[in-house]
Design a protein around this nucleic acid. Structure first.
Lengths: 189, 189
DNA sequence: TATTATAACTAATAGCATTAGTTTTGCAAG
DNA sequence: CTTGCAAAACTAATGCTATTAGTTATAATA
């Protein structure tokens, strides 16, 4: 085992993430990556099994990072605050790592078990954040689908410039989450 | 003026839409389009100004179609029913025209005035559907951002298979929209 | 110091979008 | 009916992409 492998592979991923965050996931190609690393494109195949595999790695890494920041955000929070906290952690992640977030969306193979599991962990975290609502199973599924829709939809729209008007985005998300949670409480008693 | 131009251009777009809906927007290439039309790729340039222009046309057409079905859905509806109606029209559109919907998302140039205007018409329709809530200006913006997030997020997640479990999607969207609207009413009185 | 695994390289293939330049075709006017 | 012209097809060529095969350099280890 050579210690060079891991180091170079990490560096490769780091640079790929850098490109993604700067210029978008579509700018991550074997050509641009090789150029930034000052090597020839074929040399990349010593470290990664082609472009789809690279994009899969980015998706996986992105999902793990996203989960991580969401978990961190929940510390010392309770009740609805947990939900607000993970929501803003999610939004912050998509803002500070736009390319990595993009990578999680256009995952080349959704049926990759690792990617699927990483996604499931995020869904479970969201589900757990709803515990204090004491929802029955179906309502919990509906509710978490809504929460996921809001977070993903809001982030995507913001990132693609869909919210043209310069009205504070954070206030919007806060308003939306709080309204949604009020409605859930109201719907289910 | 030869009548051939318009006909062929429409056919070209129809076939491109067909490919998009069958195999995804990424499968729409000059090569695959030419093959389906039984012509050589360069011949396409007599009708369309390259692949980015083609994708732009698809985005524009998709947004117009989406707006159209949303408007149709509002007839003979009032109050919250208008919002439910446009929501389900939106969802239905993304299900029956998945590739065209994809095209509206990955629009190559968001700053194209036509695409921007088509998008704005949809936002305005959504805004109008919220009239009976009598929201002040900022709350209306927040609310419509939430509605858009829900619709886009929900559709995207459903389309990418994000809702793994076989629990009725329509019920989920109904639950989410109704809860959200209840919360809005509750938030703003 | 010699071996060997590792990771770089060059060369080549195939597919893509696109441009330039040429030929075909079909409608419309004489 | 034919002739001319515009439209739309074509071939050929360019340069980009990912990828594979085969070769050389290198650096850690034995």
């Amino acid at each position: 085992m050579s210690p060079r492998i891991g180091l170079d592979r990490n560096r490769l991923l780091d640079v790929a993430i850098e490109i993604a965050n700067q210029d978008g996931i579509h700018a991550v190609t074997m050509a641009t990556l090789a150029k930034r690393l000052n090597i020839r494109p074929p040399s990349l195949y010593n470290h990664i099994d082609g472009l789809p595999a690279l994009r899969n790695e980015l998706a996986l890494y992105g999902l793990e990072q996203l989960h991580s920041v969401m978990v961190e955000a929940t510390t010392e929070k309770e009740g609805d605050d947990v939900i607000s906290a993970i929501s803003f952690a999610y939004l912050k992640f998509t803002r500070t790592h736009p390319g990595l977030y993009e990578a999680t969306l256009y995952a080349p193979d959704n049926r990759d078990p690792k990617v699927e599991q990483a996604g499931n962990k995020i869904v479970e975290l969201a589900l757990n954040s709803l515990n204090h609502f004491q929802l029955d199973k179906d309502d919990a599924i509906h509710t978490v689908r809504g929460l996921r829709s809001i977070l993903h939809g809001f982030s995507s729209l913001e990132q693609s410039g869909g919210f043209g008007i310069p009205i504070n985005s954070d206030k919007s998300l806060d308003f939306i989450i709080k309204s949604y949670l009020k409605g859930i409480k109201n719907s289910t008693d």
